[in-house]
Design a protein around this nucleic acid. Structure first.
Length: 718
RNA sequence: GGGCGAUUAGCUCAGUUGGCUAGAGCGUAUCAUUGACGUUGAUAAGGUCACAGGUUCGAGCCCUGUAUCGCCCACCA
């Protein structure tokens, strides 16, 4: 027997070496996989890995997805499938730029004082460094993915395909450039999609102001300088003497204005006084009203959140500083009716810096989503794209049925540049893939390059067909649509649904068949991990301390699909003990069979036959669980069988037979023990690849050099 | 405002076509054991499965309602 068994299992001593032996075998690449005993591998199984952001260390959520997907892949590989797990790395546009800006701030620098090219180059270097760091971490977690096919989201092929999709969308009139209200973050100086804002309930003051004969309500008096339309519901009896289009002169914050009466059904008669003035530049509802009636609008607040000259004496002030002063002045002029101190409402905040979003009108590129959503709804409803967790299917359909246009322009340098030219005179935008448009085709004016970049999710949304080299690559023919999309439920709308929409739009086919969504990894008490709480558990540190196999088991067992999971170190420790148990079982079995000829199957005793039958039942149970995506139950079943049946019962009972005088009984017990050990290692391999492969390498008789490509156990004959 | 989910042992959670004498990990208690075991094994305590109705031969599971908690989406000034 090998000396290594004389000591307890030491994960650190084996993991690197084992991973290298897998990687060097070439078997991560489906093209290199050996034939099975049934012949060529004819069926494909493919997963596109959600590319981790290349801007920092992997977190527990990454460890969870690596484990889940690696289990699926290893299982199918052993089952004889041609398995492709395609890894990637995400430049993660805005996310990475925010990370890098924090770094700049610490160094006392600012992106707003840097040249675009210089900033881009620095973030690129930063990302590339993190990318290779991140790849090493994926290896440490045991990811058996095909590194030869790895793709970075800024690689040429990605950019080319994304640009072509953009052009197709514009040609099909599904993408358009327009002046629309966008979510503007005054800190990050970019617009954000609705999904990139968070809402928070706040209690603010609500002001009732005298506007000519009306009293209007507002929470934001600082936007009211330019208001010259007063709006009410057409059916509101209180204001029936006023007609749509009537004008009236009245005294306002900075002097007299002429107001025009507008009747619009968007007004809620129950709210406030049922009358409001509108600020189309800084409010989405107001903007829509203005559009409906073709009204004028003017910017009041600039991109930094300061008041513009229209504010007169308040020009240049920050909005919150100005608010009280404006109210003071209105009061002095007798225009303040009353203040409601306890007005609760929801405000939008930037999801990164929690600053108030300032709605602004911007010329940006938008995608008209409804036509894209329609086929996606069908595909999800009829389970062509099968979202395994029913609750998430409902969420997806709800989201798709209430979809809104998607702003894909970002005013940041870190991303794929939008391949468009903009007219400096009429503001028209043109897609220009070849950089050949020199004059505005609408007005003949000069053009400049669009300096905006795509929302990362626009390119990520095309990831499955891009990674498989659409349209002409062999991989696309062989592996599209992929078998499973496995990712966190938090990015269901951000990513998964958009992949369905854009995949169908571009290729005519759904991008993946099954969708497995895992929950969030929380701390031992179920709290969200966050740096500020100091409860972040680094999976890499856990892997170092307890071993990757133990970490993987603790992330899997008890983790029902779609629900959140608490990562508890005492649980990790329990599976570390389990690894040690497997180690010692192997040690015992290998000691017990030393020198025995295993190639000749002996006559089995009745009780050994029963053990083999029992083993068969466990194998089929685990197989079925994995095929049903109940990986938690599969892992738990394997755990209990190996510990509480194999070790506690079978192995204990075998001691009598092995130490007894009867050679036939002894041989039967030895053969049975070895068979159960070899089969157990196979069953455990997808979950605990490192320790099982380490032990496998010491086995005297086996059907494959590497356990990774050994055949998944089929029922033994007794 | 709309949608989705949760409520099971001291703690964290499983329990998916209704058959449960309700399980796991951690924790607790007692005993045993240097024997493959950086220990492990055996045994035990601990649950009116949130609450109230209903369907059923049978409900932790299905239906209705109530309470509490959580999450997602949303332009009411």
């Amino acid at each position: 027997m090998d000396d290594i068994f004389l000591k307890p299992f030491d994960s650190k001593a084996h993991e690197d070496e084992i991973y290298k032996s897998w990687e060097n075998s070439g078997f991560f690449n489906p093209d290199n996989l050996p034939d099975t005993s049934q012949g060529k591998r004819s069926e494909q199984f493919s997963i596109i890995m959600p590319p981790p952001n290349a801007n920092g260390s992997l977190h527990a959520g990454h460890a969870l997805f690596v484990t889940l997907q690696d289990i699926m892949i290893r299982f199918k590989r052993m089952k004889g499938f041609k398995t492709l797990w395609l890894p990637g790395a995400d430049h993660a546009g805005f996310e990475t730029q925010v990370v890098y800006e924090k770094k700049l701030e610490k160094e006392g620098r600012s992106r707003f004082k840097m040249e675009r090219d210089e900033l881009y180059k620095e973030i690129l270097d930063f990302t590339m460094e993190n990318k290779s760091f991140m790849e090493g971490q994926l290896r440490q977690l045991g990811a058996s993915c095909d590194w030869s096919r790895e793709l970075f989201t800024l690689d040429d092929r990605v950019v080319k395909t994304v640009n072509e999709t953009f052009k197709k969308l514009v040609d099909d009139k599904l993408a358009y450039r327009g002046a629309r209200i966008v979510n503007w973050c005054p800190k990050h100086q970019t617009s954000l999609s609705n999904l990139e804002t968070v809402s928070e309930e706040r209690t603010d003051k609500f002001y009732y102001l005298k506007y000519g004969p009306f009293v209007i309500g507002t929470a934001r008096p600082e936007t009211k300088f330019g208001d010259k339309y007063v709006v009410m519901h057409p059916d509101d009896g209180r204001y029936k003497e006023y007609n749509h289009g009537d004008t009236l002169d009245l005294e306002w914050i900075n002097g007299p204005v002429t107001a025009t009466v507008i009747k619009d059904k968007a007004i809620d008669m129950e709210f406030g006084t049922g009358v409001m003035t509108i600020t189309p530049w800084h409010d989405a509802t107001d903007f829509e009203i203005a559009q409906r009636h073709d009204l004028d609008y003017e910017q009041v607040i600039d991109e930094q959140g300061k008041l513009l000259p229209i504010a007169g004496e308040f020009k240049g002030m920050k909005i919150l500083d100005a608010r009280d002063k404006i109210i003071e002045k209105l009061n002095a002029k007798g225009l303040l009716d009353k203040i409601d101190e306890n007005y609760t409402h929801n405000v939008s905040l930037c999801y990164k810096c929690n600053r108030l979003i300032e709605p602004q009108i911007k010329d940006q590129w938008f995608i008209h989503m409804e036509p894209l959503a329609e086929p996606a709804i069908k595909a999800i409803e009829n389970n062509e794209v099968h979202i395994l967790t029913e609750q998430h299917k409902k969420v997806a359909l709800h989201w798709l049925n209430n979809i809104r246009d998607w702003n894909i322009s970002r005013q940041i340098v870190w991303g794929i540049p939008i391949p468009a030219k903009l007219c400096t005179e009429c503001n028209e935008g043109f897609v220009d893939l070849q950089d050949e448009i020199k004059k505005c085709t609408k007005c003949g004016g000069a053009v400049k390059k669009d300096t905006d970049t795509f929302d990362t999710w626009f390119s990520s949304g095309q990831w499955p067909f891009i990674t498989l080299d659409y349209p002409n690559g062999d991989d696309f023919k062989n592996y599209y649509p992929t078998s499973v999309m496995e990712t966190g439920h938090d990015i269901l709308p951000f990513w998964v649904i958009r992949m369905v929409m854009l995949g169908i739009y571009r290729t005519g086919t759904i991008p993946f068949k099954d969708v497995y969504l895992h929950g969030m990894v929380r701390d031992a008490k179920g709290l969200k991990m966050s740096k500020s709480k100091g409860n972040v558990i680094s999976p890499m540190e856990v892997s170092d301390q307890y071993g990757t196999d133990a970490l993987r088991m603790s992330l899997i067992v008890g983790n029902t699909p779609g629900t959140d999971l608490n990562l508890d170190l005492s649980k990790v420790n329990a599976y570390k003990k389990f690894a040690n148990k497997i180690w010692n079982i192997s040690r015992f079995v290998l000691t017990s069979i030393d020198g025995v000829n295993l190639s000749q199957k002996p006559e089995l005793t009745h009780s050994d036959q029963k053990r083999i039958t029992e083993l068969n039942a466990v194998v089929s149970e685990i197989t079925k669980y994995i095929e049903d995506y109940r990986i938690d139950l599969a892992a738990d079943t394997a755990y209990h069988y190996v510990w509480h049946t194999f070790a506690d019962v079978i192995l204990e009972e075998s001691k009598n037979s092995i130490n007894g005088e009867d050679e036939e009984i002894k041989l039967s017990a030895q053969w049975t023990l070895y068979e159960i050990l070899a089969t157990s290692l196979k069953m455990l391999h997808p979950f605990m690849p490192f320790i099982t492969e380490t032990i496998w390498s010491k086995l005297p008789k086996k059907d494959a050099e590497l356990l990774m490509v050994a055949e998944w156990p089929s029922p033994h004959t007794t």
